[in-house]
Write a protein that binds this DNA or RNA. Structure first.
Length: 800
DNA sequence: GAGTTTGAAACT
DNA sequence: CAGTTTCAAACTC
């Protein structure tokens, strides 16, 4: 498996990762030799289930071992200490179990090689299969049920009596221990009967080995339980790959880490397929010259054959999405990387590919079917190329997965996710004049086909929008119940994308086909993404030195119209004050910039996801009127700012183009020949302009100086206040409060308390007591001031 | 902060 | 396409 870069991980908009709810689990059809394994899932995703309904999390009929290993391993629990849990078992209310599951949302699909049964589980599914818990060790051992029951679907599992069957354990689930390190254990399909006991016991004492996949750059090899006679034994080395997520920084030590989810459906253990039953992750050796990530989507006939089936995955919790993140680590030793991820896209999983743009070489992300006969064609579309880096989108031409990645040069966000909604069968249709844009975006369209997503982006509880204005936690639902196929990308701050997408403003739902169902694509501004990251369930945080953007002001932006990123980021967009336009016309700067209103002062604002329909309509109207309405007005010159110019030119008549009324002047560019201004003074040799510029520069310098002075003063004040011990002044005076140290404060309080006590003992009236206390306080102050003066004199005497 | 000016956007 | 109106930002007081 690949490494999820902490940088990328931290920058990943979590809500994108979070939202597919799968309501049902189509498992029953998975018979025969089909082996499915979904292995790693995100962690630290809150579990829906309470203790009483400890039935979700991990299901496995074939023996899944969930081993949340904590840092503080309690006494190892032996087989006797393990608690078997099942639906029928009320012992599931163990807090330990809950806690373990809470950190383990592994999604697994396993198939017993012997019985041929398949079990599909999801991290958010209810834990219906019997499993054993080693509470002391914080381990959960899921035992496969009897073969007769194994053929049933997951729904049948809850009703089945739990049977601890230790053979055939194959799949190990990733969890997070206290240390935040997820661990994946690999067990052979035909485990020995000592599995339970061994697993619960001291792992290191076990002779067979399984690999523990950890996060934090540490991989451990741990004994594999049983499986000595397993035909899969030879595959173990391949079956278990390390999910190595870069070390977490101390800053975000508690931050959850995204996992790369692997779902495997092995049909007949096809040799072509790298997916092996019980295999958690596979990583093939680099074979391509270009760095590539391959998502292998195994054919899940059972799932696809059940259109109505859904897999219940809480949007809040999980992860029915597959996150594929390129190895962020810039190790040149491994420039090529191919990650094969079996993905059952029919489950509505999403694949998110994040790639660093720093890579000079283009990155390919290929999604395909695992089974050879079902390998879907992939379309690679070069959306654009800026600055030498590629802006490439490679998407499957066929139905799944509905994901495409976009690599945006200079941006840390390089992703596009498509969320397929329930009625996703429509095709995207170009919207009006924005034909070229649609053409550009066309590759992004993914035919949803028969894919049936259980949830739109968000059911009521899932992805929520932190309302632009009311930055409240209760936010607006990102996607209303209307089921749409969306394209989410941080387009707003990426002006370079816009030309590529031609006229697509951020937030645009790409060509919602009228009459073709509620299918469309939404380009969500990065600010929105950022907001979503702040939602409670999006707990993924940076595990690296990168600080995750916490607000719109800190989000990564690409250079805007030639203006440096720093400038763009350091100067947050002004809030609009629209009153009549509903922020749905180009009068509104927010709307014109393709952003949602956020912290604006507008009235009756419709520029938010709550009014997505209206907004989309307005966008379409604008595009109808002017296909380039959302293009940057200031074209970026080929070489430097000198070539920057207004795309349309200004029409100023009274301002002389020397006020901010003039768009050219506002953009700090000179008027050009295409301007229709009257009395223009905004040209190179204009003395008025030079004077203005000088004045402006001087003013800016003053502002900077003032800011620096304020910062320095603030810093000094903070420093003073932070000191708990007096500092001998270096010549200058030192305020008396500097001498109010902790000790002085305590002494003063003691004096006051003593005075109060004395007054109380003497039965003084309250007024008198208060007076005495105040007097005492005055005395204390005087002593402090006196001490301060002495210290100053002393210091002066020693010439310090 | 209220009122005015300005020019882009929207409309006819 | 031109003229007019609307609109919100920029500006002034």
């Amino acid at each position: 498996m690949d490494v999820v870069s902490p940088e990328l991980n931290s920058l990943l908009p979590d809500e994108i990762m979070d939202t597919e709810a799968i309501e049902d689990l189509p498992q029953s059809q998975a018979h025969g030799a089909t082996a499915q394994s979904k292995a790693i899932d995100e962690t630290l995703v809150p579990m829906e289930t309470g203790e009483g309904e400890l039935s979700s999390g991990v299901t496995s009929e074939e023996g899944t071992v969930v081993t949340p290993i904590s840092k503080d391993p309690s006494p190892c629990s032996s087989a006797e200490n393990q608690i078997s849990l099942s639906n029928s078992s009320k012992s599931s209310s163990l807090p330990m179990v809950k806690r373990s599951l809470a950190t383990s949302t592994a999604t697994t699909k396993t198939t017993d090689s012997v019985t041929g049964t398949t079990v599909s589980t999801s991290g958010l599914q209810k834990l219906t299969s019997p499993f054993t818990i080693s509470a002391a060790n914080r381990q959960i051992i899921l035992n496969k049920v009897a073969s007769a029951q194994a053929g049933d679907t997951a729904k049948s599992v809850p009703t089945s009596h739990q049977v601890i069957k230790q053979e055939g354990q194959k799949l190990l689930v990733t969890t997070l221990g206290k240390s935040g390190q997820p661990i994946v254990l690999q067990l052979p399909p035909t485990g020995s009967k000592a599995v339970v006991g061994q697993t619960s016991g001291d792992l290191k004492t076990q002779t067979p080995q399984f690999k523990v996949v950890t996060i934090g750059g540490r991989t451990e090899l741990k004994p594999i339980v049983g499986g000595t006679t397993n035909q899969m034994a030879t595959l173990q080395a391949q079956q278990l790959k390390t999910v190595q997520i870069a070390k977490k920084t101390p800053v975000s030590s508690s931050a959850p880490i995204k996992f790369i989810i692997t779902k495997t459906v092995n049909k007949g253990a096809s040799p072509q397929s790298p997916v092996i039953a019980g295999r958690v992750l596979t990583q093939s050796s680099p074979v391509l010259p270009a760095r590539s990530i391959t998502l292998t989507e195994p054919l899940n006939t059972s799932l696809q054959s059940i259109p109505g089936k859904k897999i219940a995955i809480s949007p809040l919790k999980t992860p029915s999405k597959v996150t594929v993140v390129s190895v962020a680590s810039p190790t040149q030793s491994a420039p090529q990387k191919t990650v094969t991820l079996p993905v059952n896209v029919a489950l509505g999983q999403q694949i998110l590919a994040v790639q660093q743009s720093t890579s000079a070489s283009p990155v390919k992300v290929v999604t395909s079917q695992a089974t050879v006969q079902n390998v879907k064609p992939v379309q690679s579309v070069a959306v654009g190329s800026v600055g030498g880096s590629q802006f490439k989108t490679i998407i499957p031409l066929s139905t799944q997965p509905n994901v495409q990645q976009i690599q945006v040069p200079g941006s840390r966000f390089h992703y596009v996710r498509l969320v397929t909604a329930t009625t996703a069968s429509s095709t995207v249709q170009p919207s009006g004049p924005s034909t070229n844009s649609v053409q550009t975006a066309k590759p992004m369209l993914v035919n949803a086909g028969a894919v049936r997503m259980s949830v739109p982006i968000v059911p009521a509880q899932s992805v929520k929008q932190v309302a632009p204005k009311p930055l409240t936690t209760t936010a607006q639902v990102v996607s209303t119940p209307q089921t749409q196929q969306r394209l989410i990308m941080p387009a707003t701050p990426l002006p370079q994308i816009q030309p590529n997408f031609t006229n697509l403003p951020p937030g645009t739902v790409l060509a919602p086909a009228p009459g073709a169902g509620n299918v469309g694509y939404a380009v969500v501004p990065a600010q929105y993404v950022t907001q979503l990251q702040q939602t409670p369930f999006v707990t993924l945080a940076s595990s690296s030195g990168f600080s995750a953007p916490s607000s719109i002001q800190t989000q990564a932006r690409l250079p805007l119209n030639g203006v440096s990123t720093t400038e763009s980021t350091s100067r947050p967009r002004k809030p609009c004050n629209c009153t009549k336009s509903q922020c749905l016309k180009l009068y509104c700067d927010c709307f014109a910039n393709g952003e949602f209103c956020n912290n604006c002062n507008c009235n009756n604002c419709f520029n938010n996801l709550e009014h997505e329909t209206e907004r989309l309509k307005a966008i379409k109207t604008c595009l109808d009127r002017n296909p380039e309405a959302f293009k940057p007005k200031i074209g970026k010159g080929k070489e430097g700012e000198s070539d920057r110019r207004h795309s349309k030119g200004c029409n100023c008549k009274r301002s002389g183009c020397l006020k901010n009324y003039c768009e050219c002047y506002e953009a700090k560019i000179m008027c050009s020949s295409i301007c229709k201004c009257v009395g223009c003074k905004n040209f190179e040799e204009s003395p008025e302009r030079k004077t203005l510029m000088h004045l402006a520069d001087a003013a800016e310098v003053r502002v900077q100086q003032q800011t620096a002075a304020k910062t320095k003063l603030s810093s000094q004040i903070s420093d003073l206040l932070m000191r708990t011990t007096p500092v001998i002044p270096t010549g200058g005076g030192r305020l008396p409060y500097t001498f109010v140290t902790k000790e002085v404060l305590e002494a003063t309080c003691e004096c006051l308390l003593e005075r109060a006590k004395r007054s109380e003992q003497t039965l003084q009236p309250q007024a008198e007591a208060e007076r005495m206390i105040l007097e005492e306080f005055g005395h204390c102050l005087m002593r402090i001031i006196s001490s301060a003066g002495k210290a100053k004199v002393d210091c002066a005497s020693i010439n310090c």
